[in-house]
Computed example of a mutant assay.
Amino acid sequence: MATPAERRPGTRGPLPGDHRQRLLDGMAAAVRERGFARCTVADVAREAGASRRTFYAHFSDLDACYLALFEQFAERNLAAVAAAVGADGDPRERLEAAVGAYLEALERDPSLGASFFRELSLTGAAGRERLSAVNRRAGEAIHALALAVQAQEPELGVEAMSVASARLLVAGIVQMALFALDGDGELDEVRTEAAALLARVLFSSPR
Score class of each variant (00 low, 15 high):
15 L>E: 14
162 S>V: 08
73 F>A: 02
178 L>G: 05
5 A>R: 13
203 F>N: 00
117 F>K: 00
98 A>N: 04
45 A>P: 07
171 A>Y: 11
3 T>Y: 15
42 A>L: 14
150 Q>Y: 01
140 E>C: 05
21 Q>H: 09
17 G>K: 04
19 H>G: 11
10 G>E: 02
6 E>C: 02
89 G>S: 06
34 R>G: 12
35 G>P: 07
1 M>L: 10
73 F>H: 15
108 R>S: 00
34 R>Y: 06
75 E>I: 08
36 F>Q: 03
92 R>F: 08
161 M>E: 06
92 R>A: 12
118 R>V: 06
34 R>K: 15
199 A>Q: 04
158 V>F: 10
107 E>M: 09
37 A>V: 04
122 L>I: 09
180 A>Y: 01
109 D>V: 04
146 A>E: 02
97 A>F: 06
177 A>S: 12
29 A>C: 11
77 N>H: 15
15 L>P: 07
201 V>C: 10
167 R>W: 11
189 E>Y: 12
45 A>Q: 08
174 V>K: 14
120 L>N: 07
123 T>R: 03
20 R>Y: 11
100 G>F: 04
182 D>W: 06
88 D>T: 11
198 L>K: 00
201 V>G: 09
46 R>D: 15
170 V>F: 10
149 V>D: 05
189 E>F: 14
160 A>R: 12
6 E>M: 09
103 L>P: 09
167 R>Q: 12
48 A>S: 04
197 L>Y: 06
114 A>P: 02
193 E>H: 03
102 Y>S: 14
186 E>D: 12
170 V>G: 00
128 R>M: 14
41 V>Q: 05
121 S>L: 12
85 V>E: 12
161 M>A: 14
152 Q>F: 09
64 A>N: 10
30 A>G: 08
19 H>L: 08
142 I>T: 13
157 G>S: 05
5 A>P: 05
